[in-house]
Design a protein around this nucleic acid. Structure first.
Lengths: 166, 166
DNA sequence: CTCAATTTGCAACATTATAACAGTTCTTCT
DNA sequence: AGAAGAACTGTTATAATGTTGCAAATTGAG
């Protein structure tokens, strides 16, 4: 059973989360229209659930949330929705956590960097193009042609750093 | 059941694999002695199995290989050996593959970059310190304190790039 | 409206990983 | 050497994550 994680202090402050989700939904809707993809109610709902948590959510956690609503979906339903959302760059999978998180920049960019707090579980996404370019150059030195990159950094977020200092 | 992957052409050429494994074993033995850790026969054998494959190996693949020998270990045995080897930096886990690969530089370094060929499955490890430093700087800009980093790049290795060009 | 394609539902199953506890081996201290 | 404690391994069971294959329903195009 999924027990919803308490929203970290850093997010309660300075952050209108309802608005944040709305904006993401609108952007996703738009992007799907442009790409001729169908943003069905199920996909929309899964997207919304992922976005509602700023900490990555596992597929079975999403499943539990959906089970608390009208639907009683089975695993493949959720995995397919997540596949769709990943394909269109709307969510990312964090492999080391077996979990998914909303992408802050659905349009472009390849190879974001994720900062995962080991204490509170929040994940921040960086997109430093220079990092990607430099890695690309190093790989080319070895004759390797990179197609996609994922960087996962684990450590302490600002709030938890302050907390641990005390 | 584990069906051993064919050794990619890039590795058959220019590479004395038996020697490569021997060297890695000696280095591992050494490092364990220095750290007061016990390089037991089981751990040694698991390390050797991982090193014998230049493509990442899943825990159950290792289990299958061990089952073909005297032992009939159960999953926890292998996972524990892998945990030990990871703790001492002798192997790395590639989260997106649920698989393990030998570390080319057991002593130091944090935050290597893995180049994963999507065609033949080989993995090359880079260690560009500058990349780590730059990411560290970006993270600090956001107040995030990085403790460890893993970068996974997927693409085509030199041999498979040439092959696909033809 | 009908056909074809896409999406969803569903049952069964495969793969990866861990918990809990018992037995064994190694090390250290006397 | 012998005893005590720590580290390692064995074993059973189970949890968590992800997939296959096929049937039913929905959608969009002609």
């Amino acid at each position: 059973m999924h027990t919803p994680r308490e929203i970290p202090a850093a997010l309660r402050r300075n952050h209108d989360h309802a608005r944040c989700i709305e904006d993401a939904l609108a952007a996703a809707q738009d992007l799907c229209r442009r790409e001729g993809a169908r943003f069905t109610p199920l996909r929309r709902r899964v997207f919304e659930i992922v976005w509602a948590s700023h900490t990555p959510l596992g597929a079975y956690a999403i499943l539990d949330i959906l089970a608390g609503e009208g639907r009683r979906p089975m695993p493949p339903t959720v995995y397919r929705a997540l596949d769709f959302l990943q394909t269109h760059g709307l969510v990312h999978r964090i492999p080391s956590l077996n979990a998914y998180i909303g992408c802050v920049d659905p349009g472009g960019h390849h190879g974001g960097q994720y900062l995962i707090c080991r204490n509170c579980g929040t994940v921040a996404e960086l997109t430093d193009e220079g990092l990607g370019q430099r890695l690309d150059a190093r790989a080319r030195d070895h004759g390797f042609r990179i197609e996609s990159v994922l960087t996962e950094a684990v450590g302490l977020c600002p709030a938890c750093t302050r907390e641990s200092a005390a």
